[in-house]
């Protein structure tokens, strides 16, 4: 059962590691604000950059604050599954909403 996973979950991060992650998150926040407010990036790349930075930040939080990096891989899989099903929901809904003849049917 779970007897052999002892070394997996009692990982103790060093204070240095946690502060490094926190600092990285802060820097990424500053970068994303600067890029959005002071640099003109042509659409759609502005959204793509902003979301990419958000994904990196989320990845840092999940991997090091939520300990997924050291945890059993199954928990990471759960997170990815949630994201995958969210994407599925959005993509299939867009299949309808983007291809309607009339955006909102006029009745």
């Amino acid at each position: 059962m779970s007897g052999n996973s002892h070394e997996n979950h009692h990982h103790v991060s060093t204070a240095g590691q946690l502060w490094a992650v926190g600092t990285a998150l802060l820097i990424l926040t500053i970068i994303t604000v600067v890029l959005a407010k002071f640099v003109t990036i042509p659409a759609p790349f502005d959204i793509i950059t902003a979301i990419s930075i958000a994904v990196v930040k989320a990845g840092l939080v999940a991997a090091f604050f939520m300990n997924l990096y050291w945890d059993t891989k199954f928990n990471a899989m759960l997170l990815l599954m949630a994201v995958a099903f969210f994407m599925l929901m959005v993509l299939i809904t867009l299949l309808d909403t983007l291809y309607r003849v009339d955006v909102v049917p006029s009745f």
């Binding site: 299949l95 309808d96 309607r100 049917p105």
Partner: peptide
């Protein structure tokens, strides 16, 4: 029959 797109 709800008016969703033909592709969907």
């Amino acid at each position: 029959t709800s008016g969703q797109s033909a592709v969907a």
